[in-house]
Design a protein around this nucleic acid. Sequence first.
RNA 1: GCCGGGAUGGUGGAGCGGUCAAUCACACCUGACUGUAAAUCAGGCGCCUUAGGCUACGUAGGUUCGAAUCCUGCUCCCGGCA
Length: 315
Amino acid sequence: MNMSKLLVVCGPTATGKTSLGLKMAQKFNGEIISADSRQVYAGMDIVTGKDLPPAVTSQVSNLSWQGRFLKYYEIEKIKVWGYDLVNPDQDFNVSFWNECAKILISDIRSRGKLPIIVGGTGLYLKSLTVSMPDIDIPQNPDLRLSLKDKSADDLLDYLSLLDFARAQQLNSSDRKNPRRLIRAIEISQFKLSGGVSASQPKAPTDVFSICLTAPIQFLKSRIDQKISQRIAAGAFFEAQNLLATFPPDLSSLSACGYRAFCNPDWESSWSRSEHQYLKRQLTWFKKQPNLFWCDISTDSWSDLCFSAVTNWYNN
RNA sequence: GCCGGGAUGGUGGAGCGGUCAAUCACACCUGACUGUAAAUCAGGCGCCUUAGGCUACGUAGGUUCGAAUCCUGCUCCCGGCA
């Protein structure tokens, strides 16, 4: 096999990405790396839908990242990486994920296997195929603190002062988005102070991306099924425990099921936010180039999908 | 039966004579998104093809140059007394 191949299974929530990923791994001798910004947190299992079989526990590998050893789960004899990278009260972001993914990809390849990225966090997936030098520019906590309460207008003015061109490039939505403006200021300041982002050139990679989808109503009802399954599996107690253990404003706990927990009608409010999330994901994926789309509500999607991958894999 | 309060757009809820197609929030639609991305943000959101026009604030009338806003009848809802 060509050692630069990389298979991606992406798409919105509740499309069965993981189970397809497992089948692909079985057929093509692969291992899975999850690309999910909420499943990276240890202990956030049921609500985020890790779907771990009962009694399966994580194994520690000899691969290290940021001073800790990466873990994997073995599901249906397939190694699944990328879960439980940090605790819910630790920061996590694209840059970290990208580092882990690179370590894992090269390790999986070194063992003669096919890395399969499975997940719905579009930005994480994009970081693997598009060169994004700025994501490695570190956060500046003092700067963030000093800008925390500024209005979008003030932030935009400040950014224009630092880096006029960058401010001009922002679209009309991001110009009013304090979080993005602060990040832009952070990057500009880093560069002005002589910082250079150490971006390595991308290794050439032969990527095949499957994107699972279905008509929106189909997906919404799948989401609702999954939510009731998760509630039956103990989601309530998981959420209750986490919210009793950690401050509720952690970004990890902004995931749908936890954030909705304070609402009187938890289940329907959870469902609503998953539906909204679904739409945002569809908006994102629709724009991504070179995806092999599969409509999981059709009969023959699975066969079509396997033959396309086989074709790519043997080339 | 009597007394009091209320009926506003998909929902909650402002407005209490003109600048009201109606603050705001939620829902919904469309979209953006290269270090929080299950996050964050933007635009739209009565009807008509626009300047503009039309129909709207329970319902029927009335007062007024002008009413969602004032008055009267009716219908329904809520609270108190019977």
